[in-house]
């Protein structure tokens, strides 16, 4: 029973046996270095996405059209901050520090979801983001509630519970605009036109272009592929678009009875890679804002630290 005597092969065997039984991997369990690396990357980038994702919506808090909408938007943006913090903690349980992760985000070494590099031009974008962007994120996060790493899975359960209002409030905004004046309806359609394709891109490259996917599925980090999740999102969303009298901005959308799903047009993969590589409309702005807010918050951390030190000294005396 001495773990020191187990060689690498036995450890891998035990690890894979655990996965085969759908048991979760916990922070102190032995895990392959590549599994750890894969998850640190995935969880920290997921955390960064939540934090950067506060910016496009934060942009409209002061201009929300009513007190009700303003309270809702504030609560949603606060939730995103919370989700980022749950995820940073989950990543820390794998042995990376909060400081290291922030450093990676600020230097551009770590990525975050490209969707947040698009600008929010009108109030209708708040509707489109809640409905489509959170909708696509939920599709992915529902799957991740069953991911093989315990702390990540538990963070996902908490996040999914909180997300459910995010999508509804977005759809409500779109519905109200779509049934308003012609100008309001046009604003809603314009937002849908701009957010539809980037939302489909959120699921990542096509399966055959996604080299990490196969390994992630083998390790049960992911349970479904990018293309499967994307297809399910399209299937669920088309009728929501039609219900409020808007039009999916894709001429190729067509029900395919044989596959019991919609066929849809080709994503502009050049645009996808351009934004991933840092050349989207808002990449530089998002990171500049993040660094600025980090630097401007330094005095708070210093003060908190000084206060804690003073208290410790008083106690010791």
């Amino acid at each position: 029973m001495n773990s020191l005597k187990l060689d690498e092969n036995q450890l891998i065997e035990n690890f894979e046996a655990k996965l085969a039984k759908n048991e979760m991997i916990e922070p102190k369990d032995w895990m392959p270095a590549q599994y750890r690396k894969h998850l640190i990357r995935q969880i920290s980038q997921h955390a960064h996405s939540e934090i950067i994702g506060m910016q496009p919506e934060g942009n409209w808090i002061t201009r929300a059209p009513s007190m009700r909408r303003k309270m809702v938007l504030l609560a949603k943006v606060q939730d995103e901050a919370g989700h980022g913090l749950y995820l940073y903690s989950a990543a820390e349980s794998m042995g990376i520090s909060r400081e290291e992760m922030l450093e990676q985000l600020h230097t551009g070494e770590a990525k975050y979801s490209s969707i947040f590099n698009y600008p929010t031009l009108t109030w209708a974008d708040m509707g489109a983001i809640g409905w489509l962007v959170d909708g696509a994120a939920i599709m992915n996060q529902v799957m991740l509630q069953r991911t093989s790493y315990g702390p990540y899975a538990r963070a996902m359960v908490r996040i999914c519970k909180e997300e459910s209002f995010h999508q509804r409030q977005g759809y409500e905004i779109m519905n109200v605009l779509a049934s308003g004046s012609p100008e309001q309806k046009e604003m809603a359609q314009d937002a849908l036109n701009r957010w539809w394709w980037p939302s489909l891109m959120m699921f990542g490259p096509r399966d055959e272009e996604s080299p990490n996917s196969a390994q992630a599925i083998k390790w049960k980090i992911k349970r479904e592929t990018n293309d499967q999740l994307r297809q399910r999102f399209v299937n669920q969303t088309v009728s929501q678009v039609e219900k409020i009298g808007l039009v999916v901005p894709d001429k190729a959308i067509k029900w395919n009875e044989a596959k019991k799903g919609y066929d849809f047009g080709e994503i502009n993969w050049d645009e996808f890679w351009t934004v991933v590589k840092g050349n989207g409309p808002c990449n530089k702005l998002r990171i500049a804002n993040k660094i600025k807010s980090h630097d401007e918050g330094a005095w708070v951390r210093e003060a908190a630290n000084a206060h804690a030190e003073k208290n410790n000294k008083t106690k010791a005396a």
């Binding site: 538990r154 951390r301 908190a304 206060h307």
Partner: peptide, 12 residues
């Protein structure tokens, strides 16, 4: 157990 937080002292 719910998760973790960062803080500088008990109260925070």
């Amino acid at each position: 157990h719910a998760g973790s937080v960062h803080a500088h002292d008990n109260e925070m």
